[in-house]
């Protein structure tokens, strides 16, 4: 019996040492990993809404960020549109100006076919969305203004529809909660 206890102990010892080492390295790398992710999102937000200087998180049915300029004025919004593409979800970061017009988009995450649907990350495709409103964010076949990617209609439609839906949702959310924070300190004073 003691033999088996010894075996168990050795295994436990090794596992314990391993855990300790891993815990140590985890302590070193975790902050960097988290920082990486935050940086990535911030960068994406800045790309799709370059007018904004800082961003402010707003919790809602569709969570979004408010983009504020140097003076703290709202210049637009950014949010994630998730569409079901050809072979999985496509996450698109959308930047919306104050006038409910697309400022820019960036496809953050997709698993579409390389050379086909995956071309949706290319600027040739994403730049088409600039300055479109919710009605225009549709592929041409569906009556919108977005040219599809050759051979990958499904991807283009998925991206367009997800953005369009999210924009409609944003509109609702913003109408429900009236535009505030134009002059935060004035509000407070009143």
């Amino acid at each position: 019996m003691s033999y088996y206890i010894r075996l168990g102990l050795i295994l436990f010892l090794i596992a314990a040492v391993a855990s300790a080492v891993l815990a140590f390295i985890n302590g070193l790398t975790e902050p960097i990993i988290i920082e990486n992710q935050i940086q990535l999102e911030i960068q994406a937000r800045q790309v799709v809404l370059p007018q904004a200087d800082t961003f402010e998180y707003v919790e809602d049915e569709l969570p979004y960020y408010r983009g504020l300029d140097e003076d703290g004025n709202i210049v637009g919004y950014t949010f994630m549109a998730v569409g079901s593409g050809y072979s999985g979800d496509i996450d698109t970061m959308v930047g919306l100006t104050d006038e409910m017009i697309v400022s820019n988009i960036q496809v953050i995450q997709q698993t579409e076919t390389p050379g086909l649907g995956a071309n949706c990350t290319r600027p040739e495709f994403t730049e088409q969305y600039q300055d479109l409103d919710a009605e225009q964010v549709k592929i041409e076949r569906d009556g919108g203004k977005v040219e599809t990617i050759t051979g990958a209609t499904i991807t283009a439609r998925a991206v367009s529809n997800s953005i369009s839906e999210a924009m409609i949702q944003m509109k609702k959310q913003l109408e429900a909660a009236p535009k505030i924070n134009i002059e935060p300190d004035i509000e407070e004073a009143a």
Partner: peptide, 10 residues
Amino acid sequence: VYLQTIAFIL
């Protein structure tokens, strides 16, 4: 979470 791999394989 960093012990995921070890835990799962064991």
